[in-house]
Design a protein around this nucleic acid. Structure first.
Lengths: 188, 188
DNA sequence: GCAACTAAACCGTCCAGTCGGTATATAAAT
DNA sequence: ATTTATATACCGACTGGACGGTTTAGTTGC
């Protein structure tokens, strides 16, 4: 059991290191040596935990997905009731990630996967499809829900590639806009 | 001048080849040898046209920007007057790119740049900032314009990474939604 | 005669993955 | 109690191939 605990801790350290490095040096420059050094172990140790680079990237993606899911379910409890709850929850989750400090892990996995092996995005595709299903099943105003969701996707994509032209003020305004859209809908 | 014509044609072939390859094998796997072979010339010929890989990537980005700009200005003439013209134009331009066949060139440049040298995204940053400025300056209903623009950004990002869960039908609906948003605004 | 290449060898570097070895712990055998 | 065995977790030198870029010598078409 101590083994398991030890292994887990190393795995986490490695995933943290990888995410940090992607943010710092770019997705295409991620090397196993760099990850190992940052994580405080040798390359051999790294490859002991993840038998290939691909396995490491896969784990990065999976952790990202898990974090988003966890975060969503944690937020679900705190949501005040009202229309388009699922959509409001989805936007809040993404906003929490991308405007809080956690954006790193959300973005970096995607970027590495896109760079090295687009197939790694398959699980992400599934999650997104599930999100759409949930929205379709649970929205009072699907039009507003779709637009709101897409807008948050757009915003977080801009942020994660550092392409966002928005000031904190702009962003705050946009968040309020989306909430207004989700609660009041599009003018008929 | 014939030189220029010849060079231009080769340059175009090379840029096309690079864009195709990125779409096929992933942004991080783009090699000069592969581009040269696909473009139908030698590596020497490729490096004669673009003295370094970085120069090639830069040109990919620039061509992408030029295509978006051209497309926008071409569409501008055909727009029917009405509120939020600039925002409707922006969305129509992006939709034309991402739902038509031209999405490839729009996306691939971004992906390679993100993978290999994030600095190459600088000009893209500028374009996006300019777009926001144009929206702010020319929108009757800035709220709707911002939301619509972000939604199209979100949609096109999903499409360009092949993450989109939308059917053609869904997409059609979303486009109409955005247009309704831009013409009628958010319910107060 | 020059621009725009071709063809192919070559160099230096980077990097994923391999492999033999080590340290520690726990268990089994004597 | 001591040796032996086994498994876990890790080290780090090394290999082999890929890749960006250079060079050189020759070719083609205007």
């Amino acid at each position: 059991m101590e083994n398991t605990r030890g292994r887990k801790s190393s795995r986490e350290k490695i995933l943290d290191a990888a995410a940090e490095l992607v943010a710092e040096i770019g997705a295409g420059r991620l090397t196993l040596d760099a990850v190992a050094e940052r994580a405080g172990l040798s390359k051999g140790g790294l490859l002991y935990n993840f038998p290939s680079k691909d396995a490491l990237l896969q784990a990065m993606i999976q952790r990202m997905i898990d974090q988003v899911t966890e975060s969503r379910e944690a937020l679900r409890a705190q949501m005040e009731p009202g229309p388009n709850l699922e959509a409001r929850l989805a936007t809040k989750t993404l906003l929490n990630m991308c405007c809080g400090g956690k954006m790193q892990e959300v973005a970096t996995g995607l970027m590495v996967a896109t760079a090295e092996n687009p197939r790694l995005l398959d699980p992400v595709r599934t999650v997104i499809a599930e999100t759409l299903d949930r929205l379709k099943a649970n929205s009072d105003d699907l039009d507003a829900a779709l637009l709101g969701w897409l807008a948050v996707e757009g915003l977080s994509n801009l942020e994660m590639h550092n392409l966002s032209p928005f000031s904190d003020q702009d962003r705050e305004r946009i968040v309020q806009l989306i909430n207004r859209l989700l609660t009041k809908g599009i003018a008929s």
